[in-house]
Nucleic acid binder design. Structure first.
Length: 153
DNA sequence: GCCAACGTTGGC
DNA sequence: GCCAACGTTGGC
């Protein structure tokens, strides 16, 4: 099982919004960056996603999701009305794919960037490629986060 | 709201 | 296929 970080702006889509959906699941669509897309396509059912709030007062890991189905074609790329519309993508050769994720839990104590950095994640893609919206964690990095969560709860 | 970082586009 | 210009992300 691999662990990932999924960034989302809480104003656009927060962990609370996910938790309030009837089935608590959503397609992680709208990603338009190839490195992030490759991560989305590498996700397997059962993988863990850390839900990260970005572009907000306290950017932090705020909870967990589980990957419940592997990446499928992101339909928003064909939708003219969508802000994720991609004129260069075709049904024959779609560019963008998205997995389905399910809400697992929301943390009482989110893990801020400061905490993550101090705990030893300073070399993670979260800090080295700070604009990347889908991040792959190494098993070492995942263990550090698990340990932090144990201490916090 | 500023601005650095950096991915993407497009002219040559 | 190089690289400057441009646009966007996201922390501060």
């Amino acid at each position: 099982m691999k662990s990932w970080i999924l960034k989302s702006e809480p104003d656009a889509f927060s962990i609370d919004m996910l938790a309030e959906l009837p089935d608590q699941t959503t397609l992680w669509d709208g990603v338009r960056n190839y490195m992030a897309r490759n991560h989305l396509m590498a996700m397997k059912v059962g993988d863990r996603g850390y839900f990260y709030h970005s572009s907000c007062k306290v950017p932090a890991i705020v909870g967990e999701v589980r990957i419940v189905s592997e990446a499928e074609v992101d339909e928003t790329q064909f939708n003219l009305a969508s802000k994720y519309y991609d004129a260069k993508s075709t049904h024959a050769a779609p560019r963008w794919f998205c997995p389905r994720v399910k809400f697992l839990k929301k943390y009482e104590h989110p893990l801020s960037r400061e905490v993550l950095k101090e705990a030893g994640l300073e070399n993670s893609q979260l800090f080295t490629s700070f604009r990347l919206s889908v991040i792959a964690l190494t098993s070492t990095e995942a263990k550090i986060i698990e340990k932090l969560l144990k201490v916090k709860s």
